[in-house]
Design a protein around this nucleic acid. Structure first.
Lengths: 406, 406
DNA sequence: GCACGAATGTTCTGACAAAGAACAAAGTCG
DNA sequence: CGACTTTGTTCTTTGTCAGAACATTCGTGC
């Protein structure tokens, strides 16, 4: 039951049913390809004539293409339909604290090429660098295929509408308009989004074909900070000020260590990668000392994780402690939003076997109901490049989104 | 950008534009009544002919009616349209720990009659009692007007689809099907909903005409427990297990007093009315002792509130302490959902002048951004009977809800 | 080898809502 | 009283949906 916003509504015209059904059809092909017109007609409960009509338009638009006919037990052989993704390219860019990743992918997220360089915080130097690299990638691997946009993923608060980076402390960016200069330099549409939301979009839009697609879930990213992308009713929640999903700064205890946000005992000061490494090093965590100490110590979260895999007790204990607090943090999400699942991303998922029992135990101890306790917690490995996949989703997903009416 | 759920979608037919536009039109009349056909045509950017056509159908359905013509500076006098609400009745029922409230209202929430009786937990006794009272109310005040349904508000977890009360600890109900026996006894459709969600629905659907209607907000109820109704994109969030919005059991500190939920330091143990009264009495709060102690002490939250209004220091201090913790709790909501506003309901709103500065100070101290710190916190007085208004909204709102497509 | 059935895909036609023009109604103003 | 303005209704045109009819292409049985 949704309320109609009478200050900004979309009236239906005589083309509205067409728009709606075209989009449903496109999504059905997406999730069931290869699929025949007759099968689509059955699934949509419309006549085959209508499907011919609708697919003709989608083929003309270049959204679908016809494949070969396939065998069938009797009758005319059906002609299979596919979504055109392999020759539509996206450049996904993931800007992180130390490194920036660029990946050339097709519309369904398949990687074509990838490169890395040290992050440049200065915008006037970053934009030319990106321009050169993107142009080279497209020249070498693009061939005749067309690039339809850039998906830029940033660790911080973003206004997706204006493309402004509102606040990205790791990069020292505040109210930086990165979209306009990039669009100008490359002549391509640029979509900017914050990392946890981008990861959530990738999960929702680029899942493996056939796999059930979640429409109510939370994607929690564990890196230098803790962020979350919240999806309700198949829609991302941005909140009034693009600051929804800041579960990292929910306090677990009122008198815990100070956090950069000004609070005390935030989830982040217990479970961020910085906190975990500090714990491993046996140092008291504080945001200031962490940033000073860690680079000099040379120990990274990846190092702690691999030592835990190798069986080092101190590393395992440090990660277990992180898992305990993470379980407490996830149970806050479960209580407040009751999602159908929570996806966890970040380096620590490499030792998920180690963390999972602890996390589930903490959640179970705090859950209000049995069903809440059973909320699936799903790890996503960093090796799947969820943020870059998110960058791809930024460009490709709008093509498949439901049209808005009423 | 919403994802289409390909397992349960609604295909558009040739009547779809009609359904959409009828609903937009109905909502425009609702929020701007009295309004003429020509004005509707301008707002919807369609021809006046189309408006005549659409309104004719709504009038035939009994959703709208024509009023008198009114003066206009020049030209033909416009004929005003109204939503038919005054002769469509709803019985709203609010079952609470000690008392049950029944109110007969019209479709826009105007009270016609109200009565109260001691809550009966036993379903086999409650249903006949409600049947008699509802029948009498309708016989006395109903006249020729038709009652279109019952809106039942319950303090606990509810599956709105099946009408089952999953868990209402204050009433001792667990998996109780109250809808079926009531529908059978009264021959009217019965809608069951939990209190905070019902309050949120009332806020969204029964706001004063002309007032801006929020579509992204959280309604926090402060009573024997703390509950919240979360509204995102004009839709209530129920979560996977109908347990979304349990902000009352978010821990503020890990080693606080024990809570009935099994956790420690939950928001609820600091800010519920039970906690406030215990604090006023100078007793250590614990859920078990509170329920035993309070009835015998004879002190209620209403008493504490009125003593605070009278200027009693101890009462003021007890409430200030509640406000401090409530501010901390609300800041969790702001961080995680970033709503455009938070509505607070409950007895303590009677002394809002006293509490507001404290709450805002706590929120300001914890906010991540200036805009988040400025999130409006709006009190709703108990004297407006928000829960009963919610009961009305349960029945009347579906008439105005946006049709679902794609 | 050829009719027949079964399934897929295309084309055609009727029905019906949207869009907009033309028209009727009902007022004001000079 | 007529010109003008605004509201509301009616009528015509247009274009899509829906379903029937038709074409296509395969396997199967005689």
């Amino acid at each position: 039951m949704r309320k109609i916003n009478t200050r900004s509504f979309v009236r239906a015209t005589r083309w509205t049913p067409r728009e709606i059904n075209l989009q449903i059809l496109l999504n059905l092909v997406r999730e069931h390809e290869p699929i025949s017109r007759a099968e689509l007609a059955r699934r949509m409960k419309i006549g085959r004539g209508m499907v011919t009509y609708l697919t003709a338009e989608l083929i003309a638009q270049g959204a679908l293409y016809e494949g070969d006919t396939v065998d069938s037990p009797r009758g005319r052989r059906p002609q299979m339909l596919y979504v055109r993704t392999h020759d539509r390219l996206v450049v996904a860019i993931d800007i992180r604290f130390s490194s920036t990743y660029i990946m050339l992918t097709d519309f369904s997220g398949n990687s074509i090429a990838m490169e890395t360089f040290d992050t440049i915080e200065d915008l006037s130097a970053l934009v030319p660098e990106l321009r050169e690299r993107v142009r080279r990638l497209l020249a070498v691997h693009g061939a005749s295929r067309k690039c339809e946009g850039i998906g830029l993923v940033v660790p911080g608060m973003v206004d997706a509408v204006s493309g402004q980076v509102l606040n990205a402390p790791q990069l020292g960016w505040r109210n930086v308009d990165i979209r306009s200069p990039l669009e100008e330099a490359l002549g391509l549409p640029v979509h900017v989004e914050n990392a946890p939301i981008a990861c959530a979009l990738a999960k929702m839009w680029l899942g493996r074909p056939g796999a059930p697609v979640p429409t109510d879930f939370v994607y929690v990213t564990v890196s230098d900070g803790i962020g979350a992308g919240v999806v309700v009713n198949g829609q991302v929640v941005r909140g009034q000020t693009n600051s929804a999903g800041e579960f990292g700064h929910v306090p677990l205890t009122a008198d815990g260590p100070a956090c950069l946000c000004g609070g005390h005992g935030c989830l982040e000061v217990y479970t961020s990668n910085l906190a975990t490494v500090c714990r491993y090093l046996g140092k008291e965590f504080s945001p200031a000392t962490a940033r000073a100490l860690l680079p000099s110590s040379g120990v990274t979260i990846a190092e702690v994780v691999s030592r835990a895999i190798a069986g080092e007790t101190r590393a395992i204990e440090a990660l277990q402690e992180t898992a305990r607090h993470l379980g407490a943090g996830l149970s806050v999400i479960i209580k407040t939003l009751s999602p159908t699942q929570i996806v966890v991303g970040g380096e620590i998922t490499e030792v998920w076997d180690l963390l999972e029992p602890t996390i589930l135990r903490e959640i179970g101890a705090r859950a209000l109901t049995d069903m809440a306790a059973a909320t699936p917690i799903v790890p996503e490995l960093a090796s799947a490049y969820p943020r870059l996949r998110g960058g791809t989703a930024l460009v490709s997903a709008p093509l498949f989104a439901a049209p808005r009416f009423a």
